[in-house]
Each structure stands twice: as structure tokens, then as C-alpha cells.
């Protein structure tokens, strides 16, 4: 596809980012959640998965889902620099999505964490996978973090002992930024981050189907 000059000037320069190697985690239910990196071609599916949550006020799903929706579009259509999206699936069904971006080679920025399926600590696993990507695969020194949901935010802040750095601004808004440093990551990683690699090819094949969830615990009686 030929990209015209005006469009080209609207696109941020791209850094070559090493891909996130897929992994799988055995959840408490015994189900295996595969975490893999989504591509731009996957975005339309992910948008469909997120869309129902945009109107769920409880637990700030609406804000998180609406912003993630916009960020997914921005990723797909080249409007944010060096964004990435990781998706969690169980038997191919989308159960959660996380995203973020590289600010520069040293600093990463966490955007959002959405767990669609509840009760299996999926959000915590996907958040950890996102930190793993920044620290262990992109080789970054720190990740800037804020959040809209008080529960998620306090959980990250307390459990990872995030460093408060109100002098640094986060793109998501004016709340004081917290930082996961490399040292904090190394300290907490053993208790927070798990999973196995490589993902067996047939399991990864199923994961890439990105099947839309048929139910949302946040939306009783949901029908697609």
C-alpha cells in the first residue's frame, strides 16, 4: 500500500521492537491462558471484544474500556508511537487485553488492563506479562504507571511497591505517576510473573483465533 505524504507526516516514527514471545499460564480452574502479542490485523476483533464494556459504569470498566478502544484504534492506524497490545485467551476466547508503549529505549508506559473473565486473577497475570515485556524483552529500565480503577491501581501500587514520581507526567492524565523500576521488578517478579514457553503450536494456533467472548460477567444477560 502506498502511503501518501500527508499521512506519512502524521505517523510517528517506529522503533524496531522485539516481539513478546507467547507463553501460557495454568489458571486456578485448570484452564490454560495463552498470552500473545496482537497485531494490527487483530485490532477489529479486539475492538468488538471491548465494545460492550464501554457502557459498564461499575468498577470503572467504561473509562478503561473506552480509552483502550481509542488506543487500539490509534495503534491500528498509526497514531501512537511504539504501542503494543497483549491479549489473553482461553481456548481461543479473549479473556483480557493489556497495552502500553515505549516512550524511549529506557522508559516504558503502561496504558490499560482489562480483564473480561473474572475470578481467576487474569488481570494480575496480564499486568505482570506487560511488565515482563517492558523489562525482560524490551530491556527497559522503568515503566510509568497510572490507572483509572482504584482497586487495580492500589493493588499494583502496594504489591509492586511502585515508586511515586509526581514530577513525571503520564499521558493518561494528571494523577501522580508511579514507577516500576528494574529493581522493583526483579524483587517482585518471582511472586507475580509466571508461565511457560514455548506455547505448543496447536495451542498458539487456537489462541490466534481470538474468539469473541459469549458472556461478560460485568453485563448480566449479555447477548451479542
Amino acid at each position: 500500500m502506498i502511503v501518501d505524504k500527508l499521512e506519512q507526516s502524521l505517523r510517528p516514527p517506529e522503533t524496531n521492537m522485539p516481539p513478546y514471545p507467547p507463553k501460557y499460564i495454568t489458571l486456578a480452574s485448570g484452564e490454560k491462558m495463552v498470552v500473545h502479542q496482537a497485531s494490527r490485523e487483530d485490532v477489529p476483533r479486539l475492538l468488538e471484544a471491548v465494545r460492550p464494556l464501554v457502557t459498564v459504569e461499575k468498577d470503572f470498566y467504561d473509562i478503561v474500556a473506552a480509552r483502550l478502544y481509542a488506543e487500539l484504534l490509534a495503534y491500528q492506524r498509526y497514531r501512537v508511537k511504539d504501542e503494543y497490545v497483549l491479549v489473553g485467551t482461553i481456548d481461543g476466547v479473549i479473556v483480557g487485553i493489556v497495552n502500553g508503549r515505549m516512550v524511549d529505549d529506557k522508559v516504558g508506559m503502561s496504558y490499560h488492563t482489562v480483564a473480561i473473565k473474572r475470578g481467576l486473577r487474569i488481570g494480575a497475570q496480564l499486568f505482570a506479562a506487560k511488565m515482563e515485556y517492558h523489562m525482560d524483552y524490551l530491556g527497559q529500565q522503568e515503566v510509568l504507571i497510572v490507572a483509572e480503577s482504584p482497586i487495580g491501581y492500589r493493588r499494583w501500587m502496594i504489591e509492586y511497591e511502585l515508586e511515586s514520581r509526581p514530577s513525571t507526567w503520564h499521558e493518561l492524565g494528571g494523577v501522580p505517576t508511579h514507577v516500576l523500576t528494574k529493581a522493583l521488578w526483579e524483587k517482585h517478579k518471582p511472586m507475580k510473573c509466571t508461565g511457560r514457553r514455548p506455547v505448543p503450536p496447536e495451542m498458539l494456533e487456537v489462541a490466534k483465533k481470538l474468539i469473541l467472548p459469549s458472556e461478560y460477567p460485568q453485563i448480566p444477560g449479555f447477548k451479542r
Partner: peptide, 11 residues
């Protein structure tokens, strides 16, 4: 204890 009550900002 890893699930401390309100008032403790420690892991």
C-alpha cells in the same frame, strides 16, 4: 500476611 488491611501500604 500479603493481604493487609486498610491503612498499611506494604506488600
Amino acid at each position: 500476611v500479603y493481604a493487609l488491611p486498610e491503612g498499611y501500604m506494604k506488600p
